[in-house]
Each structure stands twice: as structure tokens, then as C-alpha cells.
Write a protein that binds this DNA or RNA. Structure first.
Length: 589
RNA sequence: GGGGUGGUAGUUAAGUCGGUUAUAACGCCGGCCUGUCAAGCCGGAGGCCGCGGGUUCAAGUCCCGUCCACCCCGCCA
């Protein structure tokens, strides 16, 4: 029999009368004893094949009757109009193929779940049989769309003069940042390890020193940290670096990319430039560094209004240098049970509790009505509260109050359904602090990474007030999720040394761990900067995926295992011996 | 590392106060059926109740431990 002449999903009324050959998977068959219908599926869709005794003949009817779901077949026949029996729910529903020949290419056991759009199999079942799951049209569509997106990205950067260069996966472990995935080396001396890259950061900087001017790579990165719905141990970055640039140059390139992707994938037009907000501003207005700007409901600073209002918890929080941060919900009343649930949200983010006030005809309701009358008045005014409005608030340290209320803001927006459908909130957050204090290690650590350039005007505070030094950094946030982050890098060796010292990395250690970067800075490093976009996350948001796992062909579970392959697995004793490794306490099964 | 939810036919779920032979739907197998497309009708098979221990005359059900999955906190430059 000749090979495929058309995809199943491509059949249309215009094909009527033509002889076609289809190849695909049997989705379902409906046997009427006399005639028999088979739905045949391939990547592009489903077509109905009909076996009729007068066309197919007895032996073929008998073989067609044996077909079962997920058998792989090649079917030849004539495309006929369905006449009265058109199925308006299928793109191919105007026609059917009257089978004249049938070749069974492969049989299938009964699949563990039906290969259909809507199934109620659990994720464990789906991931264990991922090939079958990926055969389902909605799952396949995600990866087909992902492929379209990466193609748009590659073309965009190629059109703008970026060079695609590959960087090593087997590289060296560096201090700072996430836990590395380690790969033992077999070579002498034993006891040496490669690390899989958390990102190609240093390599792309070396490419700038080398003079490539503009680099991009769609590259896998690895971080051995605990997982979340939006975090996989191996993930893909769109990695970008440019020479002779300021932050706005990098942002302009990424702005253009987002404009193109949103238009082509979501059919959404945006005007450029994408708005910028400083870190300080976003913390103050949204309480988080990844603001969801698709809706208002901004945070209120009620500190001055309720100061000295005679409410113990509030007064002591303010006296300790804290803040009172609130949200005003217009015309919303919460039940006791609902308030408890909301309080639980702020508590998981460190707040001690949630207070509330509701403006009623005769005055105020809620636990905070014990505040002095003038404080109540001032709070109502600061929140611009009208009758029927509820004010929720937290009194705590500034960051705890802001962060917990920022999380509550997003929680409430979802709960109250005030996030507009099919809207795209894109914003840059700039000027992050260069350093943050690590309580665990009791030292200053990089918020971004140690190669981030500080803003020069803040450098005089590097030792006196390290937390106030701002970085020349920028994150891009889409619908409340960080989808990328970058910075202008340090291209001056002296500056790099000063930053290492501020991080508590001595000259010797710096030389040993980062020597290959520092050395390159001695031989003519151009000013440079760049960004890395989280491709999985970006695709997930664009396609409305519920989990990152939906846009990754072979994802890992929350304990970083692969249900499909069984990785990670034990290895043979001689493999360990060759590497000079011993497992403490022996290998556990 | 901590908290929460879940695990019962191939799949998804129900299973009361601990009590007879563990239910249902879909799927599967057999039969009927010439216009279905969630096909229909009749019949049938199918169980390590995650795993291990304990309490009890008796455990899917109660207790302890453990494994796995998912969600969250910590963590993730």
C-alpha cells in the first residue's frame, strides 16, 4: 500500500472524491454489525473511517472488526461527503474515508487510560505512561505550541544579530547560589567532581570578553533544590548577554521579544516600552517583587493613621520600627470562617495575625474597633473606606507586613475573581538590592549573583550600609510570575574584588573559585550585561498550563524523580568503584 | 527540614459507629445490531483496599511506623 498522503486532521470537504492513505492510531471503533466506524487519530486531528461491506468486502470487514484502541494502522480509501450525517463538532466532520484497504502496523495492549482530550487519570498514572499521555491531543498541543515559541525566540535573536553558542554542562562547582548537581570524575586523582550548571553565567561573560558582542542560547540549567509547582530541578533558560549596554538596552531587546511572542501566541498587542518599577516601589505597592499588575487592590500604609491608637499589638509593632499594611475590599464582608482562612494565609508568610475593620452605618465593626476614635477615623480616611468596605491589615516588621499582605492580595484576587481573563500584566522590576543579609550564615550574600554591578552612586555605602546598595538589575514579571532576571555585570577587576570582599570571599578563595573569570577581566573586558528568561514558566503562562509539568515532555516529580524512567537509580558496584565512591551505610533499595 | 491533602478493580471514585460475599461508573471480554461519532441493548470477567507492624472475636475502616504523589513554608545567587 502507498504511504500517507494526508494527515487525518487535515481532511476537508475539498478532498471529497480523492483517494487518500491515512496513517495513525485507532481512537475508537463503533461496530454496527453491518457497517463499522473507526476514528483515526494523528498529530493533526481525527478523521472518521467507515468500513462498508459493499466497498470493503467480507475479509476486510472481518479484519476491521478486530481493530482495538491505539492500534497503529494504514488505511486507504476514497473521501466521501457525509451528507446528512455531518459531525459539526469535528474539523474533519464533513467527510469520511470509505476504507478499501487496511494494514495493521502495530497492535496495542489495553491502555491504562483512554487517549482522549478529557481524562480523569491522576498525574502519577499519566507520568508513568508519559508516551501515552503525550499522545493525547491537549498535551501534545502544549508541546507543539512550545516548539512554535522557541522557534519565534530563535528567529528573533538571530534577526537581531545574536550568536548562538553552546556552553559546557560538565563544569565546576562554584560557591554561592543553589545546591549543585554533582557528577563524579573517573580520572585520577579521585574525589573530584563536575557540577551541572545552575546557569551558564560565567561562560556567557567570557563570550563577551571574547568579543562575540551578542550571545543567546536556549539552554538547560540544573539546581538541586526542593521543588514547587512552578519549579523543576532541570529547567530551560533563554540565556542572553550583550556588550556595551546599559540596562535599558537589554530591556529594549526583551521588550521587543515579548511584544512579538504575545502577538503571535496570544494575539495580544502591547505598547513599548514595557513599564518599569523600582524594587522599592513594587514592595511598597504590591508587597512582593513579582507584582501581578493585572488588577489594582494595592497595599495601603496605615502606620501613621493608627499610630498611638491604644491597640497593644499595633502600638508595639510600630514602636519596634514596623509598619501597618492594609488592603481595602470594596463592599466585601467576610464571615468569621473566611477571616480565619485569610489569617492563615498571612500567618504562613510570617505575620502573627490578621486584623480587620468594617465600616458600618453606626461606626466600625471588627476586632480593631477598640482603636481610639481618631485612629479609626484616620484609618478609614487613609483607606478611603466607604460604608460596607472591609479593611484587612497586618502590623509587623515592614517586610513581614508587606510580604504577607502582598500574598494575601493575590490570594484574595483569585478568591474574589477580580483578575481579568485573557489579560497580560507585564512589568519590569529594577534596582534590586545588591546584597541581602543571610541569617543562616550571618553574612551578606548576593541577591542576584556575585557578578552583578552595583549602582556606582551607592558604592560609598558598600561597607557602612551594605543593604542599601542597589544593583543595576532588572526582573521581568508576567502575570505575577518572574519570567526573567538579569543585570549589568561587573567588568572591572577591582570592582569585582571589592564585591567578593563584601561577600566575605577572600582574595585567595576568589582566585581559586572564580580565577577563570577574574583572569579574563584583566585582558580587556567590555561593559556587558544580560538576562535569562525562564522558558518553561513563560510557555506555561502563555499557554495557560496549570503546572510546569504540562509544558515539559518528561518532567520530574516534587521529589525530583522521574516516574517514567525510574531515575535516580542505584548503579552497579563496579561503577562506584571506578569512581572511587562509597555509599555511607551501604546502598538502600 | 517542617506543615497539609491523598493512596480501594485497568482507570476514576464511594465505602456509615469496626461486623454477611468490598460497591459504582468508565474501560475490558463475549453476543446482537447498516449511520454512529460519550453509539445502543444483553451477558461476563476483573481486588496485595500502597507497604509493615499493632489493638480486636473481627480492620479497607482504629493506632504506630514507613513509602509514594500533589500543594505550601523554609530553600531556590
Amino acid at each position: 500500500m502507498p504511504k500517507r498522503s494526508k494527515y487525518c486532521g487535515e481532511l476537508r470537504a475539498s478532498d471529497t472524491g480523492n483517494a487518500v492513505v491515512l496513517e495513525g492510531w485507532v481512537r475508537k471503533s463503533r461496530n454496527f454489525g453491518g457497517c463499522l466506524f473507526v476514528d483515526l487519530r494523528d498529530r493533526e486531528g481525527v478523521a472518521q473511517v467507515v468500513f462498508k461491506p459493499e466497498v470493503a468486502g467480507e475479509p476486510l470487514m472481518k479484519r476491521a472488526g478486530e481493530l482495538r484502541p491505539e492500534w497503529v494502522v494504514r488505511i486507504g480509501g476514497e473521501v466521501l461527503s457525509r451528507g446528512e450525517n455531518v459531525n459539526a463538532n469535528m474539523p474533519t466532520g464533513e467527510v469520511e474515508v470509505a476504507a478499501a484497504s487496511l494494514e495493521v502496523l502495530s497492535r496495542s495492549e489495553v491502555p491504562p487510560f483512554p487517549v482522549e482530550d478529557e481524562i480523569n487519570a491522576t498525574e502519577v498514572t499519566r507520568l508513568t505512561h508519559r508516551a501515552l499521555d503525550l499522545r493525547r491531543p491537549p498535551v501534545q498541543r502544549m508541546l507543539l505550541e512550545r516548539s512554535r515559541i522557541t522557534r519565534i525566540i530563535r528567529e528573533y535573536f538571530a534577526d537581531n544579530g545574536f550568536v548562538d553558542v553552546e556552553t559546557p554542562f560538565l563544569t565546576r562547582s562554584t560557591p554561592e547560589g543553589a545546591r549543585d548537581y554533582l557528577v563524579p570524575s573517573r580520572e585520577d586523582p579521585k574525589g573530584r567532581f563536575y557540577a551541572l550548571p545552575q546557569s551558564p553565567q560565567i561562560f556567557k561573560q567570557l563570550l563577551m570578553v571574547a568579543g562575540f558582542d551578542r550571545y543567546m542560547q536556549i539552554v538547560r540549567c540544573f539546581r538541586d533544590e526542593d521543588l514547587r509547582a512552578d519549579r523543576q530541578p532541570e529547567f530551560t533558560q533563554v540565556d542572553v548577554e550583550m556588550s556595551f549596554v546599559e540596562p535599558e538596552d537589554v530591556r529594549a531587546v526583551i521588550d521587543g521579544l515579548f511584544q512579538l511572542i504575545l502577538k503571535k501566541i496570544a494575539g495580544h498587542e502591547i505598547t513599548l516600552p514595557v513599564p518599569c518599577m523600582t524594587y522599592e516601589e513594587t514592595i511598597s505597592r504590591y508587597g512582593v517583587d513579582n507584582p501581578d499588575v493585572r488588577f489594582g487592590l494595592e497595599l495601603l500604609d496605615l502606620t501613621d493613621a493608627v499610630r498611638g491608637g491604644g491597640f497593644g499589638i499595633i502600638d508595639s509593632a510600630i514602636e519596634a520600627g514596623g509598619e501597618v499594611c492594609g488592603l481595602r475590599l470594596e463592599g466585601v464582608t467576610f464571615s468569621r470562617k473566611q477571616v480565619d482562612a485569610l489569617a492563615e494565609v498571612v500567618r504562613t508568610h510570617g505575620a502573627k495575625g490578621l486584623l480587620w475593620l468594617r465600616k458600618e452605618p453606626g461606626g466600625w465593626a471588627g476586632p480593631a474597633k477598640k482603636l481610639a476614635p481618631e485612629a479609626l477615623e484616620a484609618a478609614g480616611e487613609a483607606a478611603a473606606a466607604a460604608e460596607g468596605d472591609t479593611i484587612l491589615f497586618v502590623a509587623d516588621s515592614r517586610m513581614t507586613a508587606r510580604t504577607s499582605m502582598g500574598r494575601l492580595r493575590v490570594h484574595l484576587a483569585r478568591q474574589l475573581g477580580i483578575i481579568p481573563e485573557n489579560s497580560w500584566g507585564l512589568v519590569w522590576v529594577t534596582d534590586f538590592p545588591l546584597l541581602e543579609h543571610s541569617e543562616e550564615e550571618d553574612r551578606w550574600v548576593s541577591m542576584h549573583h556575585p557578578f552583578t554591578s552595583p549602582r556606582p552612586e551607592d558604592m560609598d555605602r558598600l561597607t557602612s550600609d551594605p543593604g542599601s546598595v542597589r544593583a543595576r538589575s532588572y526582573d521581568i514579571v508576567l502575570n505575577g510570575q518572574e519570567v526573567g532576571g538579569g543585570s549589568i555585570r561587573i567588568h572591572d577587576r577591582e570592582m569585582q574584588t571589592r564585591i567578593f570582599r563584601a561577600l566575605g570571599i577572600g582574595d585567595e578563595e576568589a582566585e581559586e573559585k572564580f580565577g577563570f573569570l577574574l583572569r579574563s577581566l584583566r585582558y580587556g573586558a567590555p561593559p556587558h550585561g544580560g538576562i535569562a528568561l525562564g522558558l518553561d514558566r513563560l510557555v506555561g503562562i502563555l499557554l495557560g498550563a496549570e503546572s510546569l509539568r504540562d509544558v515539559i515532555a518528561f518532567p520530574k516529580t516534587t521529589s525530583a524523580s522521574c516516574l517514567l524512567s525510574g531515575a535516580p537509580s542505584t548503579v552497579a558496584a563496579d561503577q562506584l568503584a571506578e569512581l572511587g565512591l562509597m555509599i555511607e551505610g551501604g546502598v538502600k533499595e
